[in-house]
Design a protein around this nucleic acid. Structure first.
Length: 459
RNA sequence: GUGGGCGUAGCUCAACUGGUAGAGCUCCAGGUUGUGGUCUUGGUGGUUGGGGGUUCAAGUCCCCUCGCUCACCCCA
């Protein structure tokens, strides 16, 4: 038998049980919090029409779409030499693609089911998404996203709630050193207008600004120069961007310098509103900071934007989101405002592993019932059933092999207790309970054993 | 798409300037036929990613190719 060398596609992973327990723990915490705030679950198909996805993620994002080859294109015939295969239209080859994020599918859903959904529509969605980029640390081709979004309200209260939820979840998971960077696309646009940067140049400038945390202020300056933005604009832009201070100080500085610009003014008041609401919601005010350098992609954001980052280990953002008031309109024809945030659970888990924030769970089984020999199978199975009836996670070894082997299994699986039922126990209608931790073993009546295990294996 | 690093047992890795492929862990069996985790003895396990070249001789040098990985771009 010559085996195929087993492997999985790059950027994908298998999640073995020990890892799944960690993932479930994180996802469970996130889901519980979402529901506590009134968000309802939604799932959408893995594949979407290419038309739905394309044009939403910018040029770079477009390249990263996993496209699905249409059936019956005749492309297979390319393998036959005599066949000449010509495609005149791209969509002859592809009409579907794998979901790239959860926001665009949501927008599609809202547009499709407008009359069925009660607005404002608050939903959460936890599903895998796919991106065809080169994997690297903290970056995969298939990964899960957890999104919450509020659709149908322009209120900054919805944005503030997103921030509060991010803060609450990160804390619940055990993060202490994180910060939510907060900015506003309107504010950014206004600052660029003030700096007399417009059109293609403003997109270009935003890319440069976004690199701040990687290349520093001088690096940004060089980037801007390299992108042929006038010296005058650069100095005007950086004179604003350079400012550091508290939220209030930043707001008043911006009002003073470029507050005449309408976008700047709107941006500031939106952020100011958010700040007030988060405070009322009881969110610690040092959890976030205004960060004028935050840009967040170039797709569909129109208002407040935010992402949360940890200082160590060095990895991209853990969560990210913002307001996108125009996206749904691309499907529905009329604009429907929306805001929301995505949790990068892969990164959250990676970081939690690196910081050793998990308690290791090897199994959830509390008791293993051994099988002494062929004659005792019925007794073992019956007692296992009794334990399960009492709510104790119990497994029965599936073969009447040597005790040594059954105990070794129990030990390796990390199951805390095992039950031995041999001829002696059966005769007296008893069972022996062995603690794998201490090695202590006692023989009890069956009902005593159940209550003993109930007491010692819970919690 | 661009640039670096690395591919040897299931896993982690050795093998001096080319000279008979090795160790630890895992796994299996025994020491202990009703008892794990420690200890101890033995055993299984390889076309050195693949192909070609140089050489008396290649894991080692050269070329090609595939794969993994890190960084850039971009992003969760």
């Amino acid at each position: 038998m010559s085996a195929i060398k087993p492997s999985i596609p790059k950027g994908t992973r298998d999640f073995l049980p020990e890892k799944m327990y960690k993932r479930q723990q994180v996802i469970g915490t996130i889901k519980d919090t979402f529901e506590k705030y009134g968000y309802a679950p939604l799932e959408t198909p893995s594949i979407e029409k290419l038309k739905v996805l394309s044009g939403k993620y910018g040029d770079e994002g477009e390249k990263l779409l996993f496209k699905v080859l249409k059936r019956g294109t005749g492309l297979e015939n390319l393998l036959k030499e005599e066949n000449e295969f010509v495609v005149s239209e791209y969509d002859q080859l592809v009409e579907e693609a794998l979901r790239y994020d959860l926001t665009v599918p949501l927008s599609r859903v809202v547009a499709m089911y407008q009359n069925e959904l009660t607005m404002p529509f608050k939903r959460y969605q936890i599903q895998p998404v796919w991106r065809a980029d080169r994997p690297q640390k903290g970056r995969y081709r298939e990964f899960y996203q957890c999104d919450i979004d509020t659709v149908g309200t322009e209120s900054m209260l919805a944005d503030a709630e997103s921030l509060a939820i991010v803060d609450e979840i990160l804390r619940k998971l055990g993060f202490t050193k994180f910060v939510i960077r907060l900015n506003n696309r309107k504010l950014l646009n206004g600052i660029l207008e003030y700096s007399e940067i417009s059109g293609d140049q403003s997109v270009s400038a935003m890319i440069a600004i976004d690199k701040m945390d990687k290349i520093g202020l001088d690096g940004v300056r060089k980037e801007l120069e390299g992108r042929s933005i006038s010296a005058q604009s650069i100095s005007k832009l950086l004179s604003v961007m350079e400012f550091t201070g508290t939220s209030e100080e930043t707001f008043s500085f911006l009002s003073k310098t470029c507050g005449a610009n309408v976008s700047v003014q709107t941006g500031i008041s939106e952020l100011d509103e958010i700040a007030n609401y988060t405070e009322s919601l009881g969110m610690p005010q040092d959890s976030y900071k205004i960060d004028l350098y935050l840009v967040r992609g170039l797709g569909y954001y129109t208002g407040p934007i935010y992402e949360s980052v940890v200082e160590e280990p060095k990895i991209g953002s853990l969560t990210g989101g913002g307001r996108y008031d125009k996206l749904i309109g691309m499907f529905s024809g009329n604009d429907i405002p929306a805001t929301g945030t995505a949790f990068g659970i892969e990164r959250i888990i990676d970081v939690m592993e690196q910081l050793e924030m998990f308690e290791d769970i090897k199994t959830k089984t509390k008791v293993l019932v051994t099988i002494f020999d062929g004659d005792s199978i019925a007794d073992s199975l019956a007692f296992a059933a009794e334990l399960r009836k009492a709510g104790i996670a119990t497994e029965c070894f599936p073969e009447a092999v040597k005790m040594k082997k059954q105990l070794s299994y129990t030990n390796k699986k990390g199951i805390p207790f095992c039950i031995l039922i041999g001829p002696d126990e059966i005769a007296k209608h008893e069972v022996s309970v062995k603690s794998m931790d201490s090695g202590e073993q006692t023989t009890l009546s069956r009902s005593d054993a159940v209550s003993f295990l109930l007491k010692n294996s819970m919690g």
